[in-house]
Design a binder for these strands. Sequence first.
DNA 1: AAATCGTGGAC
DNA 2: TGTCCAAGATT
Length: 398
Amino acid sequence: MKQTLKKTNPGSAVKLNLCEADIQSLRRQLIRWFSAAKRNLPWRQHRDPYAIWLSEVMLQQTQVKTVIPYYNKFLTRFPDIRSLARADIAEVLTLWAGLGYYRRAHQLHAAARDILNHHGGVMPSEFDRLLSLPGFGPYTAGAVASIAFGQRVPAVDGNVLRVMTRLLADGRDIHQPAVQRDLRRTAETWVPPRRTGDFNQALMELGATICTPRNPICTRCPLGSICRARRKGDPAQFPRRTPTVDRRTLYLAAIAVTDGSGKLFMAQRRSPGLWAGLWELPSVTTPGPDAPHVREVIKLAAEHHGIHLTAVRRVTDIVHILTHRHITVWIYQGRAAGSGRKRGRPAPPPTPTDYAATCWTAHPDALPLSVLAEKQLAALRAAEADIPAAGCAGRGQE
DNA sequence: AAATCGTGGAC
DNA sequence: TGTCCAAGATT
């Protein structure tokens, strides 16, 4: 039996949902399909709630393929909540460097400490308690509660939102928080009393492998018989697309400052913010779109970093693209003419203002670096600039 | 509610 | 090549 609903119905009195019979069919078909089709992923070999939690955090807005190597390394180094909670945030960031969205690493660490200090080191199992931990939103709390503890709660991520809008032929904009909340309430009625974790994972797995954003493979979909978008003939029109926003451009002048003994001046970014806690060449924003003159760079270095430069030259420049930023970086090199510098000794790091900390180091690659910072060092070396050589401590060399 | 927060895969 | 967007959370 089918409900008679208006097509896409914002404001309709009747809640957009499947009928009871279709919900039963959905549960059965999905679980059956998942048993046969599920991918063999590292986190599916664990029953430990911590291991599942870690995977869910790393997978936020990050593809499975990208996460896998980070996950394995992280879990080897920090096999349980206690080891993570007692670790230095610097080491956590080192293992996270390159994965992006670094707030996740800070909050993962904070939540581990919270669990150790206030929950006896035992992961909470209830949705509401999980939700109150740092880094847990509706999705992650639902995923951990259902997958690790079998709680009957939904786990609605981007995959599930897409699958749901297609099953329901729901034309609303899933980027709107109110729409997401409504779909989560609908999903609550879909989660079966048993095998909640498998059901939630099956919905996500379907979205990731069959019900994909473009070119969904409806011929292989176990839910084809109840999918309203498929019946309408064009499932890919759901979910509704939203107009893209332009990337803002950002212009930076970065300076590779060396002292007399082969050390490089590095700066650690503040938290919160972009690349929080990671290290990079000290830089300042400039009006753009033209590269600042050398004398301007000398002035900026003195103002922002308290360093007096000599022998400044522009070495190279790079472009870095983020989701909503287009960053142009002009890279300069100079030598510190610090007053306190003696033979073979770097000047003490100036008191940081723009940054959380600064340091002189002969091994900049040993610090947790953003991908942009790695690009900066690589570009300098390609230009044969006079900076410390790459050591063996950097990532991506194994 | 709309912005912010990274990086890379896929087409 | 540009665009979308990925097991989202936070302010």
